[in-house]
Design a binder for these strands. Structure first.
Ligand SMILES: [Zn+2]
Ligand SMILES: [Zn+2]
Ligand SMILES: [Zn+2]
Ligand SMILES: [Zn+2]
Lengths: 145, 145
DNA sequence: CTTATACTGAGATTGAATCTCATTATTATC
DNA sequence: GATAATAATGAGATTCAATCTCAGTATAAG
């Protein structure tokens, strides 16, 4: 019974492929490989991690691909407290999570909270058209108390 | 009627001075100058901006002072989308704000929202002792629509 | 004042991110 | 399938925020 585990996989990658073509960008192999690797992750990954995992794909290409995906709203940049930023896919459904970070050891855990989302959704600011948000909770994990 | 505008000024700088001594750190002039400059700001300022505004204070000292103030919980690091991080004082009262950023031009505006704070306050995560949080809203300002 | 040592700052170094540009791959047209 | 136009690539150079080094200095205790 493996089909269940794969039926939702590819949803983001597919929409990403569509949007890339719609934007007039070519479907090059290196870019596809970045998309596929991001698709496999459940949470954020750094640009240099992507670069390290993709042999034969240049650093510049990885950064350029991320930048384009970000502009297309397909990828979100997140500050996880470390020295580099993380990037994670943006589901077309709008479903997403935020992060809890241990300031001591750097451990990151994703979390979801409906009341939080509702509170954020209610915020309106004159002179600003809000499009996304980032929430990071900081603290200490049980290993670091 | 100027007294009203200054009566609350200095509260943070004072508590910072106390905490610095309590922590066994010396009250050196360069560190005091960093504290005073941070005290004057209503929102975040980058380390290099502090360095640029303080002649005769070295870059290393600025970064070290910020690091120590951060560890003492007197300063908060915020990602404002630019190339460098911003730092702002943490009021002893707990009163604070979050940020709205224009992804187009980089403009940053502080905002406060009680319902949001309440929602965050209700979040509990097993295995984590939460201590602070960062919220950033992204969008486009009226100049960039 | 003297001593012990925390602190400082100019400059070197690191490392994530960006840029350059000659070469290659993709797409449209024939 | 071949051809032309050009978007995309990647090795290496470059930028710049942030960190590190270490000899000299300032601070605070006695
Ligand atoms: Zn995540
Ligand atoms: Zn959310
Ligand atoms: Zn602020
Ligand atoms: Zn808050």
């Amino acid at each position: 019974m493996t089909p269940t585990s794969t039926e939702e996989t590819g949803t983001w990658a597919e929409s990403a492929r569509e949007r890339i073509s719609e934007a007039g960008l070519r479907r090059s192999t290196p870019r596809q490989r970045v998309v596929d690797l991001l698709d496999q992750q459940d949470c954020a990954i750094t640009a240099l991690e992507i670069d390290a995992r993709l042999d034969r794909v240049g650093r510049a290409t990885v950064y350029r691909a991320i930048e384009q995906l970000e502009e297309l709203g397909l990828v979100r940049k997140v500050d996880l407290g470390g020295s580099a930023f993380g990037y994670e896919k943006v589901e077309p459904s709008g479903h997403h999570h935020h992060h809890i970070v241990c300031d001591e050891c750097g451990k990151v855990e994703p979390f979801e909270d409906d009341a939080l989302e509702e509170a954020i959704h209610e915020i309106h600011r004159k002179g600003f058209k809000l499009e996304s948000h980032e929430v990071t909770l900081h603290g200490h994990c049980s290993d670091c108390d």
